[in-house]
Structures are given as structure tokens and as C-alpha cells.
Amino acid sequence: MNRFTKLLKNQQAFIPFFMLGDPTPEASLEIIKAAIDGGCQALELGLPFADPIADGPVIQASAERALKNGTDFAKCLELITAIREYSDIPIGLLIYFNLIYRQGVELAYQKLAAAGVDAILQVDVPLEEAEQYNELLTKSGLASINLIAPNTSEERAKKILNNTTAFAYVVSDYGTTGVRSELPQQTFTRIQNLKAMTDVPLVIGFGINTAEQVQDLLSAGADGVIIGSAITKIIAKHVDDVGQAKVAVTSFINNIMTKIG
């Protein structure tokens, strides 16, 4: 059983997202370690890609900072290895497929697994295209995270869930990643409907930014909640001061962890 399944079968989790290498590889590692110390239960990490079509401006700017400061695939592997040495926490990776394809798919999966990644979300590889790579993924030992969108039919969601070994990443709303003031009611009915059809853990993401929202989603039955842009904004505010960034990120995480108890 992978680390995510183990965790999410037993407890609900708050999962912060961090772009590897933002603002610099070194600072990024320190910030992520601080988040782990702050008590988050799992990590979702991003590999910077300069043309992230599913992401909003906050994450795109984050990727640009990371790339500008020398973050590449090899550097990301180093960072993941260091994080894995530091902690036993479940690590998910959000990645645009070209970064994997360019390395050679099998080799990329092997390298990521060896560095300590537990599961990957290939943002731009839907169910139909994923099929041809499933065998390699399984062989590498990586578990899969798959997106379920607001417009994914129930029939299709079933197929996606059948192919998901870590957790389903349920997209809360139409649009790209980024902070929204409130979550659509549909998100909550979606959680209920999906819950009724699967044992696969459901983690909600896109647009979530307050402790109250996290609490509401977990109360509605979500197994986990991901916050990305809100945390990335904090890092963006303190690009020149790692110390401040660590303090602010830790306080953001503490606030959520206290709320969800």
C-alpha cells in the first residue's frame, strides 16, 4: 500500500502544494521542511513548467521564478531526495507530461520513484492517453493521482477512479488553479456522489484558501484538501527573505491544522 492510501484511509489530511525550486532550490527546500515541521500530513509538489495551461497566474509566476533560478529536472530530483531523507511524509508530484516524456517515460518514472515520490499527477494526460503508460507506472512503483473535473460524467469518473491508486484529485471548480472567494455548492454534492461510488480517497483542490473552507470540505467527507496558490502567494511576497517566508508559511499551515484539529 502506498503512503497516501495508508494516510488517507486512516485520517483526513491537509496537503499543501509547493513548486519545487521557488523562489530558489535552496530556499524552496527550507520552506518545505518548515511546512513539514509545521505538521502538514502530506505534500503535493510541482515540477516547474513554463507553459502550465491548467494553472493560473500565481502558479505560472512561481514556475517562472523557479526556472529562472536554476531549477531543472535534475535539481528537482535532488530536492525530492533531500525531502525524503528529512521525512517519511507522503509525497505527490504534479507534473506536465512533456517533462516526463523528454526524459524518457520509463526512466523518468524510475528516477522519481527512486528519489522518494509516492504518486504522480500527470496534469495533461487524461484517462485515454494514460493507458499506454500505466504498465510502466506500475512497474516503477509510483501510484497514480487522477483529476476529476466538475464536468466529468459519473460514468467517466468511475473509470478514472478504477485507474487511480493514490487518490482522486477532485477539481472544485471550472477554471485554472487560483484563489476563489467561495466554493461552488456543486463541489459538496460532488463529494457526496463520488463517496457513494468509491473507496478511493478523494482530495479536493483548486481555489481553496481558508481554514474554514478546508474544514467545510473535510466535514463534507473529503479525505484531503490541497491548497496551492494561497501558499505560493505567501512565498511570492517573501522571495528575498527565506526566513520570513518560512515563518509565514508555517503560520498559515498552523492555522489550518489548529482549525481542523
Binding site: A54, V123, L127, E129, L147, A149, T152, S153, R156
Partner: peptide, 13 residues
Amino acid sequence: GGCYVPEILMQPL
């Protein structure tokens, strides 16, 4: 070829 897009675009496509 193929259709490599985030899940949210599968239905509109």
C-alpha cells in the same frame, strides 16, 4: 497526435 489535455477539457472536446 492524441488528446493530451487536463480532464476538464475532455468533455468540451
